[in-house]
Design a protein around this nucleic acid. Structure first.
Lengths: 182, 182
DNA sequence: GTCGTTATATATCGAAACGCTATATATCTT
DNA sequence: AAGATATATAGCGTTTCGATATATAACGAC
């Protein structure tokens, strides 16, 4: 059974107080962004449930900045719940990939479309890899964060390289299928 | 916006008639298993919606075997809907990984637990890679299927190799953290 | 200073999916 | 024959998704 959004939020809050919006930002840009995702529609209900569970508390308003901003802090009970989750056996990873689904039928598609989506995805990954490499020694990271950042990089490199090395095979199959159809 | 379970089912049915259970089996064992997943709780409602949409039809009972078995067939309208989805730009891939979440905090965990979950995951991947490699020339595949199978293999190899090459770094950090705590 | 744009911030909603359970039939093994 | 496993459909409460709504603060251009 996979780690749920409540636990993901506890993970973010274990590193410091945060608002719902800031937690969402962590999922988009922080160390968690490579392997987690959660939208507002799940974060806010999760924060409410965590508050009811006593795993987090909402801090009193600081009086400066945004009057509507709610800051949350993890409690000792929340740290314990997080630790329980971290010392359990991990569920298998789950990947959802439109690209791979589309490429399964790639030989049946217009070669131009096929070539475009592969090119675009290679560009996306190469850009992301360059950004991560540029940040590699600029950002303070824990050993764990460095480890998974490296792991994410290894995955992105493998995918980009595979697409670069093998794209011509699939595009050729699409061209041949195209000729057979004519 | 990601490809939904309806479209995934159309993809399976585009290769031949199938029951709900058989579609689920494709997500578990077939070419789709590396990058898609859908449980019965989403497949059956999706099949019902696809039937209402006119994208699939339920075949008359064959009279032999299971009396409760419902076989579905894709319609021309269903093929068109699938084609529309396949010629759209793919959404970014989404990975959910308990392992990477746990490893983010790995240096804070008991080194024995850490070592165990990494070892287990390496074994899982090495076993999966061996199975895929053994099947590589035994199973009839379309060019698209071969392409994404190779892509899946490249990812699994990258992850297994990274874990093998770098595990000692994280375990050492956990041991040091352990000593500091004592 | 004003106005428009962008960022920050919380919350909600309908639809879809998740994870599990229930029930039933067929097939296989002992 | 009995028990275990595989095949088969379906449902259910909970969670998540993806989008939208509303509001305030900050920023940039003029």
């Amino acid at each position: 059974m996979m780690i749920d959004v409540k636990t993901l939020c506890l993970g973010v809050l274990s590193r410091g107080d945060a608002s719902g919006y800031e937690i969402r930002k962590e999922f988009e840009e922080g160390p968690l962004s490579h392997f987690s995702d959660a939208g507002f529609g799940s974060i806010y209900p999760a924060l409410r449930r965590l508050t009811e569970d006593g795993h987090i508390v909402m801090l009193p308003h600081s009086g400066d900045g945004r009057p509507d901003k709610k800051l949350y802090r993890i409690t000792p009970a929340g740290r314990h719940a997080l630790y329980q989750a971290l010392t359990r056996a991990p569920a298998p990873d789950k990947l959802r990939s439109d690209l791979m689904f589309i490429l399964t039928f790639g030989h049946l598609l217009p070669p131009r479309h096929l070539d475009r989506i592969i090119s675009d995805r290679i560009s996306d990954y190469r850009r992301l890899i360059a950004t991560m490499e540029a940040q590699e020694n600029q950002v303070a990271r824990t050993p764990g964060e460095s480890f998974v950042e490296g792991m994410g990089l290894a995955i992105y490199r493998a995918v980009a390289s595979y697409l670069e090395d093998h794209r011509h095979e699939l595009v050729a199959a699409a061209l041949m299928e195209n000729q057979v159809a004519e």
